[in-house]
Amino acid sequence: MDVLIVMCFGILAGRFLVPNRAKKENEFISLACTFLLILSMGATLGKDQNFMSNLSSLGLSSLLFFFIPTVLSILIVYVLTKKFMEKRDNSQEK
């Protein structure tokens, strides 16, 4: 919940306080934080004695968690846009 509150403050800051010229600096901050968090996550995993032995099973699970949600997203978005958004294009042409 704290994370969401912080993000909402960020949205307000981006909308009303931060100038557009600071976009690149903001992107750099995001990138640097992401780098540090992933580094920290890697270090936590590396310190875990069981991690390397679990890596093969995590790899297969990750593959499954990538494949099924992505394919279902593609199929559902295709069906929904075919039914609702392509009609919008046709009605505009008429």
Binding site: D2, V3, L4, M7, I11, A13, G14, V18, C33, L37
Partner: peptide, 19 residues
């Protein structure tokens, strides 16, 4: 202190959305 880093990241993401 990764919680603090996560808060900074979320604030920065919020700025991107707000922009």
């Amino acid at each position: 202190n990764k919680d603090i880093v996560l808060y900074v990241l979320m604030f920065s993401v919020g700025i991107s959305i707000g922009m």
